[in-house]
Simulated assay, not measured.
Amino acid sequence: MPFTALGLLVLGVVLAEPVSRAFSRASWPRRDPVGALLMWQAIGLAGGLSLIGSGLVFGLSPLGANLAEAVPVLVREWSVARWPAGLDVVHFAALAVAVIVGGRLLWVLTTVSLRTLRARRRHRDLLDVLATPWPDSPGTRVLDHPLPVAYCLPGRSSRLVVSAGVLEALEPEGVWAVLAHERAHLRERHDLVVLPFVAWGATAPFVRGMVCAQLAVAALIEMRADDVAACRSEPNQLVGALRTVGGSAPAAALTSFTDALDARIERISSHPAALSRPRRVLVRLGAIALVAVPTVLLLAP
């Protein structure tokens, strides 16, 4: 078990830092956003399993040859208020760190989820009062504001919102492109895709790789929504809609927002060739294998 713990620790550190940083700079994800999102989820899950699992495996190594043997021993000894033989200070410290990190991650994930749900509920209540249903698009509400703004509010009672400024500034084709983009976010639940990376970033903000992952995933879900919208509208209509809605950001907006918008527009205009089918399959198999490695190491006898 000590060698398994060392292997898990190395894998977790490599995935959290050099792999995450390098992957965030790769160029191929813009040609396959769905595959890249699957790979990011695999990196996050495999990294979490490896880092937390390494502490569990090393901490429990004196109690058995694997976790299946060690965990029952620990439970049995502690159930009778007895300290397990062989569990010294070093192994207990490793076990405690793993439990604390795992608990911290779950706590942050739960807290962020509850906070987000409360904010969405308040926002939804305000929209029901201030916005009016749009007959031309069921499920869409119009906010009486001159600034061109469009967004979605995900959840079981989702809302898709456009401002009066969008309807005035865009032709009907541009409006449908905007709606298709936002509906893609709602249908594919991109909010749930981002949430684990937000939790990881809040748990370990000092790990630069986690910040890179969060930014990369946010960019990829926008690319994916752009691809869906581009299938339902002309590229020039989508580009014009993005310029109109994105250009309405306040003057104090960060330069990174403008850079990201310009990158999306350039991608739509240049029509990058999608990855070949064999490469797409290879990416998905790679994501499955990446999660399988720490899982096997943790569960193998």
Rank of each mutant, 00 (worst) to 15 (best):
V193G: 11
V207S: 02
E188V: 15
V198F: 03
L195M: 14
A199S: 09
W200A: 08
P205C: 14
E182L: 02
F197K: 00
V194M: 04
C212F: 11
H185Y: 12
R189P: 12
V194L: 02
R187F: 02
F197V: 08
G209M: 01
L195C: 10
Q214P: 06
L192T: 14
W200E: 03
L195R: 14
A199P: 09
M210Q: 13
G201C: 14
T203S: 15
V198R: 12
Q214E: 07
P196A: 04
E188T: 15
V211E: 11
L186E: 07
R189L: 13
V198M: 06
Q214F: 13
V207K: 01
V207M: 03
V207T: 06
L192W: 08
P196T: 00
V211D: 10
H185W: 04
A204S: 08
A184K: 00
A213T: 05
V207L: 06
V207C: 10
A204R: 04
L186R: 00
D191F: 10
A184P: 07
L195S: 10
A199Y: 01
G209E: 03
V211L: 09
E182N: 07
P205F: 08
V193T: 14
L195N: 06
V193N: 08
Q214D: 05
R183Q: 10
A199E: 06
V194S: 04
P196K: 01
H190D: 15
F206D: 07
H185T: 10
F206W: 14
H190K: 01
